[in-house]
Amino acid sequence: MIEAAFAPALAAVERGGVPGATLGIVTADGRRHVRVAGWAALEPMREPLTESHWFDLASLTKPIATATMVLTLAAQGRLDLDAPLADAIPDLRQYDMAAPERRLTFRQGLAHATHLPAVEPIYTYGDDPARLRAFILQRAWRAGPPVYSDLNYMLLGIAVERLTGAGLDAWPLGGGLSFGPPPGPVVATERCTWRGRVLKGEVHDENAFALGGAAGHAGLFGTVTGVLDWAQRLLNGGVPMSIVEAMRAPVRGERTCGWERRFDGWHGGDACSAATIGHTGFTGTGLWIDFDRDLAWTLLTNRVHPTRHGADAIFALRPAVGEAVIAALG
């Protein structure tokens, strides 16, 4: 059955849609399957992909790390999800106490229900992480309708740093998950024109790199085992129910605190149940958790290697894999 579930990813590797692909599937009671194909790197030399390779998880940092940190602090009574971020970051827009950023709440940030823009090339403003954090906090951000925004999670990451007095990389994430550099073999990502090299073991996201490597929106690395272990804890009661409920409950449309819920035509495929949440990462990663079926799967690829431009096979591959997983194991 696992071979049928892996067939779309294997076909994508064979036709060159992605250099390499790892599919991992886990159930609440611990049954798991992993399949691997292709290459961890094509440049500067070919390196076969293995189950032990670490992937740059990109925006999976948001739900696995940052949202979990915020929801854990809320469960501990250290923050109120409906309180403003300014409670944790009193210097947020400190030169304009009426600034709209000062009214943004933790819950709004988690669910991308703010006026902040999708992305900003913060790395082009300098290379001092402390100064760039100050820039994020003091910038008068242009207003617009709610969109999926890295800036929401940059602010949430700064809030976690302020509340805990430590960097995000100090948070215990569990084995197989780590802010970089990862402690093992790692897949290559892009031949970065800004840094002038093929990236391997350093975060792909330019803004996360400029912020020191560990940021609220990106910077997390993981193995397939680490991602599956984390997902299994959500399925089997290893995470407090208040956190799981917040991850599943809608806040704005299909957005929850950290995730998307299933909708027709979404990235996880239409076969999964309505009780499924999922998230993707720009480098070619993704994780989906179907609570009705007690089933989770992760698709990890290095689709941006050696370049992000034209690397669009992932958009059809993700739902195809979801359909195949449910057909084979659901």
Rank of each mutant, 00 (worst) to 15 (best):
V251P: 03
F263A: 07
P84L: 04
P181H: 14
P44Y: 11
R303M: 03
A170N: 01
E51F: 01
D82K: 09
R261Q: 13
G20K: 08
V325F: 13
R31K: 12
L155S: 06
G330N: 07
V251Y: 07
V224H: 03
P181S: 09
F263E: 04
D29P: 06
S52P: 01
M241G: 09
G238T: 10
A130H: 04
Y148H: 08
D264W: 03
I326F: 14
V70N: 06
A28W: 02
L234H: 15
T280H: 03
H217G: 01
G144V: 03
R133D: 13
D56W: 01
G219Y: 02
A65L: 02
S178Y: 15
V198T: 14
L295T: 01
H115V: 01
L163N: 02
E14D: 14
A170L: 06
G238P: 10
V304E: 02
S273E: 07
M241K: 07
E3R: 10
V224Q: 01
P182R: 07
G109D: 00
M69E: 14
G265A: 13
L81Q: 05
G322R: 00
R31S: 14
V239D: 11
A316D: 08
M1D: 02
A75F: 09
T256C: 12
L10M: 09
A58V: 00
I243T: 04
G30H: 07
G213M: 07
W171G: 02
D80Q: 08
P172M: 15
L163D: 06
T124A: 14
A231C: 05
G38Y: 11
L220M: 08
A113S: 11
A11Q: 14
A327S: 15
G174P: 11
H33Q: 04
I136D: 14
A296W: 02
I243R: 08
D312F: 10
A214Y: 10
I289R: 00
G167V: 09
F179T: 02
E43T: 12
A166E: 12
D229S: 13
R308T: 03
G157A: 11
L329M: 15
E14P: 15
T189P: 00
L295M: 11
A231V: 07
T225S: 15
A159R: 08
I158H: 10
A218P: 00
A214L: 09
E3H: 11
A88F: 08
A274G: 12
L173H: 05
T27Q: 06
R303L: 05
E51Y: 04
N207C: 05
A170S: 12
G219W: 03
H217R: 06
P129H: 03
A231T: 03
V36E: 10
W171V: 08
E51Q: 11
L79C: 12
F315V: 09
A12L: 06
T223W: 06
L132Q: 11
G310F: 10
I158D: 15
H309S: 10
D91I: 02
N236E: 02
L49G: 10
P8E: 03
W297Y: 15
A37L: 05
A74V: 00
L173I: 05
F291D: 06
H115E: 11
N302R: 14
Y95C: 08
G213D: 12
